[in-house]
């Protein structure tokens, strides 16, 4: 059963600020969805290979040939806070 502490932990991992009410509602909804998802436990998957891609492909490469980069202005044009030729971010506190 997903607890409120789990919700808070996951919200932190996912970088989402949730209000108290949101977190509680989230807990209820996730609990309902997880209860539904848990029906997968009914199935025997012993020895079954996982599928990560529906269409099996292997060894897809590109050659090591330089393609033009995009102009800096084009790359920075969408930045919420450009700082000349760089992107500015607020004070970093390690966690």
């Amino acid at each position: 059963m997903i607890s409120r502490a789990d919700v808070d932990h996951v919200a932190r991992l996912a970088r989402l600020t949730l209000s108290d009410a949101e977190a509680e509602r989230m807990r209820e909804q996730l609990a309902a969805i997880l209860a539904y998802i848990n029906k997968l436990r009914e199935l025997d998957v012993e020895g079954v290979e996982p599928t990560s891609h529906a269409v099996p492909l292997v060894n897809v490469f590109r050659e090591d040939e330089v393609q033009p980069s995009l102009p800096r202005e084009a790359m920075i044009a969408n930045a919420p806070e450009p700082a000349g030729e760089l992107f500015r971010v607020p004070r970093i506190i390690e966690d």
């Binding site: 790359m75 992107f87 500015r88 971010v89 607020p90 004070r91």
Partner: peptide, 11 residues
């Protein structure tokens, strides 16, 4: 890192 009011990123 500890005292900077902000940081800048070069990708």
């Amino acid at each position: 890192l500890e005292t900077a009011p902000s940081s800048l990123v070069d990708y």
